[in-house]
């Protein structure tokens, strides 16, 4: 079984988000990590490989820095990785770059796994777009996977009900928290830099899409909090009700 895993390097959203004078994000202050949901996808891929054999290949669009992040995550147990360096970061371009490289290098894949959303930009687009270019079925937000030959049974998370779905391989499936607990890469395999096979490719394609103009700004804070620090709970609630009625919130 050949399993490809789409991995994105993102800003650790726990780090301080600082904007410089040009209103650009100050990247020197942030930490770079693997998107949380992509770790679930990689863990699931490795588990499938452990059970059925085969190969796990990471695909990522990034830059020079991304190599370190991939090195780390590969220690979980991926066989190789393809890192495509690109200036383009919009979801459409990234998807097209991924799909093109997959077609060139690993067109014989059985399964593509990915996290259902990137927690940095909150877009949730790349997997669906890649599935569309590669013309394979797309099962989104899955919390359980069961492989039976060429059929994968998935539990797909919905709003008021979950669905049990049979999908034929090759397919693209995105995973949600709850599917597994990702293992920690072992220290030995992190230290061992020699064996990891990361193929680095330069993207040369330009985007032809007419793009929207995008600006990122710090989010404004809420107005001052009306604090009630009163030892008598009856009084505290009365004060809250009174203030909310005056503010016309109630």
């Amino acid at each position: 079984m050949k399993i490809l895993v789409l991995v994105k390097e993102i800003i650790d959203t726990n780090s301080k988000i600082v904007f410089n004078k040009q209103k650009k994000l100050d990247e020197s202050q942030v930490k770079w990590v693997v998107n949380l949901y992509d770790e679930y996808a990689l863990e699931e891929a490795i588990r499938i490989k452990e059970q059925f054999g085969g190969e796990v290949v990471i695909y990522s669009v990034g830059n020079d820095r991304t190599k370190d992040t991939l090195n780390y995550i590969m220690s979980m147990g991926a066989d190789r990785a393809v890192l495509i360096k690109s200036e383009l970061t919009d979801a459409k371009s990234v998807s097209e770059i991924l799909a093109k490289q997959i077609r060139e290098k690993d067109a014989d894949f059985d399964l593509i796994l990915a996290g259902w959303i990137g927690i940095d930009w909150n877009r949730g687009q790349v997997p669906g777009r890649v599935s569309s270019v590669l013309e394979v079925p797309f099962v989104n937000v899955v919390i359980d996977i069961d492989i039976n030959g060429k059929i994968v049974t998935c539990e797909k998370e919905g709003e008021s009900s979950n669905e049990i779905i049979d999908v034929q391989l090759p397919a693209l499936i995105t995973v949600q928290r709850g599917i597994n607990e990702p293992r920690y890469p072992s220290v030995l395999s992190i230290m061992d830099n020699t064996e990891k096979k990361i193929e680095i490719v330069d993207n040369i394609d330009q985007s032809t899409t007419k793009k929207a103009i995008i600006k990122i700004e710090p989010e404004k804070n809420r107005k001052k909090t009306y604090m009630i620090n009163e030892s008598d709970p009856e009084l505290a609630v009365k004060m809250l009700m009174k203030k909310m009625i005056a503010d016309k919130v109630m």
Partner: peptide
């Protein structure tokens, strides 16, 4: 829309393209 775990806001301007 919000990005970076709600710490920043992304402002998008569409001029003449379909979206």
């Amino acid at each position: 829309r919000l990005v970076y775990g709600g710490k920043a806001i992304e402002k998008i301007k569409l001029l003449n393209q379909q979206a």
